[in-house]
Every structure is written in C-alpha cells, then in structure tokens.
Amino acid sequence: MNHGQVADAVNGNWVDHRAPAPWRPYLRLSRADRPIGTWLLLIPCWWGVGMAAAATEPRWFDLWIVIGCSIGAVLMRGAGCTWNDITDRDIDGGVARTRSRPIPSGQVTVRQALWWMAAQIAVSALILFTLGWTAIGFGLAALVPVAIYPFAKRFTWWPQVFLGIAFNWGVWIAWAAHGAAIGGATLALFLSGIAWTLFYDTIYAHQDKEDDALIGVKSTARLFGTATPLWLTAFVILAAGLMAAAAVASLSGAALILALLGAAAFAAHMIGQMRRLEIDRPEVCLTLFRSNRDCGLLPALFLAAAALV
C-alpha cells in the first residue's frame, strides 16, 4: 500500500499514483480514489433528464444538463464524503476498513476538511445556477438529506433510506432542469432510485457489520442479517417496478418500450448480483457493490435511446 492510501481504494487508482502529492489527502477525502460513489450519485441525474426528454422532446440544453450534472456529481459527492468523514472521524478510527481515511489517519485536519468541503460546494453552486430556478430550488433542498445522512446510523436501523434520498435527489434536479412538468412519474423514478440504493448499500454494509456491532452503528445489513436475500428481492421488485411505473406514466410508443426494456435489464442485473452474493465475504460484497455502476447505466442507456426516438 502506498503511503496514505486508503484501505478500500481501487487498486492502481490515479490519486495514489499520479496526483500531485500535496493534493492526495484531499482527493482521498473526496473519494476520488473510489469513483463508484460518484457514478451512483450521477446515474439518477441521467435517469431524470433521459425520461424527461423522452416524455417531451430532447433539447440541446440537455447536453449541458448531462455534462453539468457529471461535474456536479464529482464535486457534491466529494463534499458529501468530506462532511461524512468530519462527522464520523471518531467512528472511522474504530473500524478496520476506515481508520486509514485522511482525518482519522492524521493526513488532514478537521479545519482543512471544512475548507475543502466549502470549496467543492461553491463550485457546484456555480453549475447549479445555470439550470433554472426550479432546479436551483431542488438543488438547495438536497443539502438537507446530505447533512442528515452521516447521523442517521446513530438513530435508525435504516440509514440507507437517508442515503437513498440524498443520492437520488438528482432525479428531481435534472428533470426540472429539462423543463418537463414535475409529477407522479418523477416521484416514481425517485423512489425507484431509493429502492436501488437500499439494495446496493445493504450489500456494501455487510462488509462492516462486525465492527458496526462492536461500536453500536446501525445498518440494514445488521437489521436483516441472514434474511438479507429476501429483503434484497423486495428491493429489486420495488426498484424495477417503480421505474416501469414511471415510464408507463410519462411515455408512450417506442419510447415506452425502450424504457421498459431498460427496467427489465436493471432488474436482471440486480438478480445476477444476488446469485453471486455471499454476505460473510467482504471482498464479494465490495465487488458486487461496485458492479452497480453498470447496473444503473443500463436503464440510463435505454432512456437515452427513448429520448432520441
């Protein structure tokens, strides 16, 4: 392991091998060495603009929404992770997988982390202000679940719900930025994303369940235990079903068929993950968790095709 490298960083990542040394602790704080979280924050934005465009008609501005949300996802995921590490610095020091993170390992002070978080939020705001007033309103509202999430595992067995709200808020922002009417389809797509987050983050949380039990941190992984496969099945049904419902409520013709095919591919990928799941093998859980980038991109590609037809 390179000096300062975080335990669960992607092997050969660019931060540990190519980033300037003074920037590495801050980039690690933003999880730039573990990009899967950025994908999971970004993909619901792409769902939102894709389905909104398919429901009305695509615009050239949609290309900026896609690009702007991509940059914003990198920055806001970094800001959210920085806030999470500030609030969890004592907990992270007691968990084997997280004690190597920049704050508990002494690479970054809390004061430095606060400044880094503020800088990322400021640049994100500049992008948000280009997306229209409704999107700006949704973007500002997103700060509430982002602020609450790090504390959720202290008072509820369902912290993944709060993560799902924060990570899928991009559905509202991107849909509003396109200019389509907000309605039941938007809500159904948002709830689909929350069910998906419950699916993948329960798998992720099984990595830490023993340490979490020792320090009193709650999670759906600890709550479900050996019943996890049954709960994951329910989340698959909810995620794919709600996505299909959003499509039926807003689309028709070839666009609807493509969106439904995307929902089916989405479900098939999650079912494939469940077949490989071994909840007592952390390395398997991490691999499956990371595979959800491809899982979420499947319906995004189908929605992009639906918008183009």
Rank of each mutant, 00 (worst) to 15 (best):
A247P: 04
A54R: 10
I67R: 00
R97F: 03
G50W: 00
I257W: 13
Q5H: 08
V161R: 02
I148M: 05
A259T: 12
W47H: 10
G225S: 09
A221R: 02
A300H: 01
S30Y: 10
P104L: 13
I91L: 15
S30M: 14
A152P: 06
T134S: 00
F162T: 09
P102K: 11
P229H: 12
N11P: 13
G262P: 13
G37A: 11
N11H: 11
L163W: 05
P58E: 13
I173H: 03
A113Q: 03
A307P: 11
F302S: 14
I215D: 08
C295A: 14
L301C: 11
R24W: 04
D211A: 10
A188W: 05
T130Y: 08
W60S: 14
Y26F: 15
L288Y: 10
T130F: 08
Y26S: 10
C69T: 15
G241K: 08
A234R: 14
I36N: 01
Q112T: 10
A264H: 01
K218E: 14
L303F: 14
S105P: 06
I203K: 02
G93A: 14
A264P: 02
L140W: 05
H3W: 07
V248P: 01
T226W: 06
I165H: 03
A267P: 05
P159A: 12
A307R: 08
H206E: 12
Q207E: 00
P35H: 09
P44M: 03
A300S: 09
G272L: 12
T130P: 10
G94D: 12
G37V: 03
A142I: 01
L140Y: 01
D294Y: 04
A166W: 03
V108Y: 03
C45D: 05
A166E: 06
S291T: 03
L258Q: 11
A96M: 06
T87W: 12
S250V: 05
S219Q: 07
A174H: 00
E278F: 05
A234K: 09
A152D: 09
W172R: 02
A135N: 05
W39S: 13
V171S: 01
R290C: 06
A249L: 15
I182K: 02
W133C: 02
H206P: 04
L301D: 00
R24Y: 01
A135M: 07
D280W: 00
L75Y: 02
I36E: 14
S250L: 09
A205V: 02
C81N: 08
A19L: 13
G78I: 01
H178T: 12
G132A: 07
I86M: 15
S124F: 08
N2S: 14
M76K: 02
L260R: 10
Y26T: 10
A174R: 02
V49R: 03
G93D: 09
R101A: 05
L128V: 11
M117T: 06
C45P: 00
A268M: 12
L238Q: 13
D280M: 06
T156E: 08
G48S: 07
L191D: 06
S252C: 04
